[in-house]
Design a protein around this nucleic acid. Structure first.
Lengths: 152, 152
DNA sequence: TATTGTTATACTCTATAACTATA
DNA sequence: TATAGTTATAGAGTATAACAATA
């Protein structure tokens, strides 16, 4: 059941992959620019955005898709800026939970708001269009559907 | 004209942004893994994928969204691996055009194929779904619609 | 023994500034 | 003067391996 009499041919999966590549690049470019506006690198911004709840170093390494040894340095630099702090876990003394400071909460909030205000086109989609986009992205990237709910 | 009697509420723009963040992260995770399988870093893989045509260092810096001074090192390392070479521009002797070697062409081809085969879910979308996804992504990220046609 | 986090190391990516060779 | 590319530098991200503390 074609949608219109003389429809434009659908993009090949390859073309779609190329467009997804451009969208991913545009997203990170935007994210990095917003983070830089707060004196943060991309990884520092991503890390902050993952701290909606306290998380062990190990969990951050998993979510950031990098080795645990890197997280030490990233968290060190965020700690220096007073945006996060390490808290000892009461149940397992090997674990250090990373928590946002009050200033960290504020920064995350501003970053999220600036991210959204830079994506005005996204807000102009109708409800039905957003539903469709969510559904199709969920089909194309099934691993991203069950939300661990990060921002980067 | 709602699509079904008791439809799931549409995602908020914020939820959609979060999902786009996850999709972008998943894409780069995949890209980096494929590149690593060829002994390349993410930036080296991205650079190779931009060389469907010869490009000056300056153009690469633009497309990679980084300072021109970084491209020197990236191209140096790709040159060491015999994947690209610098060619003097006949019209402007300041310009060096970066060209894929034969081995570089092969590597790019394999990387693109492995990228696609890792995105099988993408190929399972119908033509209409691919058309819709292209349209909606184009609306959400207008700057990505006119394709400079990279892969990363 | 296994796991969490850190340290040490080496390499890559990054922006800035200063330099050269062309234009 | 302006532009293309490089070099030097310093900081940040990266994986690997080895280590201490804890489980």
């Amino acid at each position: 059941m074609p949608q219109t009499p003389q429809a434009v041919p659908p993009p090949s999966p390859e073309e779609l992959m190329d467009q997804l590549a451009r969208v991913a690049a545009a997203y990170y470019r935007h994210f990095a620019a917003v983070a830089a506006g707060h004196g943060l690198t991309l990884m520092q911004g991503k890390t902050l955005s993952l701290l909606g709840r306290p998380r062990p170093m190990r969990a951050l390494a998993e979510l950031l898709a990098c080795d645990a040894s890197n997280v030490t340095g990233i968290v060190d630099r965020l700690t220096t800026q007073e945006l996060v702090r390490r808290e000892a876990d009461p149940d397992d003394r090997r674990i250090k939970n990373i928590v946002l400071t009050e200033q960290g909460e504020e920064t995350v909030g501003r970053i999220r708001a600036e991210l959204m205000s830079g994506l005005t086109s996204l807000g102009q989609l109708t409800g039905d269009e957003r539903t469709t986009l969510r559904t199709l992205l969920g089909q194309a990237f099934p691993e991203t559907t069950a939300p661990p709910r990060p921002t980067a």
